[in-house]
């Protein structure tokens, strides 16, 4: 759910601007890239069994470099909370609540995340699981209801703005799947390395399928020049659904799905941020950290000047540079651990 929520965001319009109508297979390249990098994360976790990525950074890179890597990871998550909350707020203001002050929407989202953080990971996981099935059904219903407005010729020219651009963008945007690194943050709390491997690969493959099917449907409904104009393609597509005079105006279904999944998504990111912070400073009790972290998240959310900068600077910045903190740094840690022959067992022996 944390990965797939992006399909409801401004991303489809942006990537169409860059690569044309090939987003549906570009995301599969991104997914493959993420699978490769998750493979590195898996190898890293396997090398240090029973430890989370923060402990592994310390063990592999030393206390100072480990601290820097972990802190950058936490900052990335914190920025993600702020930026995605702001993106959600601005879109909600455009489509549904134009008169509501942004601070109220941001405050409500962060408040929900704070409550979730107090209740803990198990509660978040249970709520996410509970919401996942209806959200998935609703999502695919929207896609199926759009069948009558599909135009297969919209997928042509098949290489969009060029196969090279699609492949390069696909690799660079592997960060669209970067939330899989959350598994590494909570590795110590999960049921062993094989369980993490299974959860990681399944969630990446499933997310790849869900995001790709969504982008494929958007491309089938909107011609490549039209989709570039849309703030949220999913919402506009939902509003286009019309079967006779009765069965139309399905946008409330979309809004419900979008708000619930985004709320859970923000809560997951926020809890991960708090958790990384506590792990860095070896704090046993996370509760005192929650409210100050919420203040930082709200600050990050209100920091961008306008919606245009949210989209073109912050969201795209996270997409383009997210790879570094979420995927490349674990790979570096793995490489250094191999070179320095650092292993979980050897640390225990020391």
């Amino acid at each position: 759910m944390a990965i797939c929520n992006k399909i409801f965001s401004t991303t489809p319009g942006y990537i169409t601007k860059v690569i044309g109508n090939t987003g549906w297979y570009m995301t599969l390249i991104s997914c493959a890239t993420a699978l490769v990098f998750f493979g590195f994360i898996y190898l890293l976790l396997k090398r240090f069994p029973g430890r989370n990525i923060i402990e592994i950074y310390d063990a592999s890179l030393g206390r100072v470099m480990g601290f820097i890597f972990s802190f950058l990871l936490m900052v990335s998550f914190l920025l993600s909370v702020g930026i995605y909350t702001r993106e959600f707020t601005d879109i909600l203001k455009i489509y549904a609540l134009p008169a509501t002050p942004p601070s109220v929407i941001i405050g409500t989202m962060i408040f929900a995340a704070v409550v979730a953080a107090f209740l803990g990971i198990e509660t978040i996981a249970r709520v996410a699981k509970l919401a996942f099935y209806p959200a998935l059904v609703g999502y695919f219903l929207i896609l199926i209801f759009s069948l009558n407005i599909f135009k297969p010729t919209n997928l042509l020219p098949i290489f969009g703005y060029g196969l090279d651009k699609t492949v390069i963008t696909g690799i660079l945007r592997g960060s669209a799947y970067d939330e899989v690194v959350i598994l590494a943050v909570f590795a110590g709390s999960l049921q062993g390395i094989e369980h993490i491997k299974k959860a990681g690969f399944i969630s990446l493959l499933l997310s790849g399928f869900i995001i790709s099917s969504g982008l494929l449907c958007f491309a089938l409904v909107f011609e490549y020049r039209a989709i570039q104009e849309l703030t949220i393609a999913a919402y506009v597509m939902t509003r286009k659904i019309a079967y006779g005079t009765f069965f139309q105006r399905m946008d409330p279904i979309f809004l419900l799905l979008w708000i619930i999944t985004t709320s859970i998504y923000i809560s997951i990111l926020f809890y991960t941020t708090v958790s990384i912070y506590c792990k860095i400073f070896r704090l046993q009790d996370a509760k005192p950290v929650v409210v100050p972290m919420a203040v930082l998240a709200v600050s990050a959310a209100i920091f961008p000047r306008d919606f245009s900068s949210v989209l073109s600077v912050y969201v795209q910045g996270l997409r383009n540079y997210g790879n570094i903190t979420f995927f490349i740094m674990p790979a570096i840690a793995l490489g250094i651990a191999v070179i320095r022959n650092k292993k979980g067992e050897s640390k225990c022996a020391d």
């Binding site: 109508n21 042509l156 020219p157 969009g160 703005y161 060029g162």
Partner: peptide, 9 residues
Amino acid sequence: VKHFLTIQE
């Protein structure tokens, strides 16, 4: 359009 491979063409 099926005779063309890229949007530029």
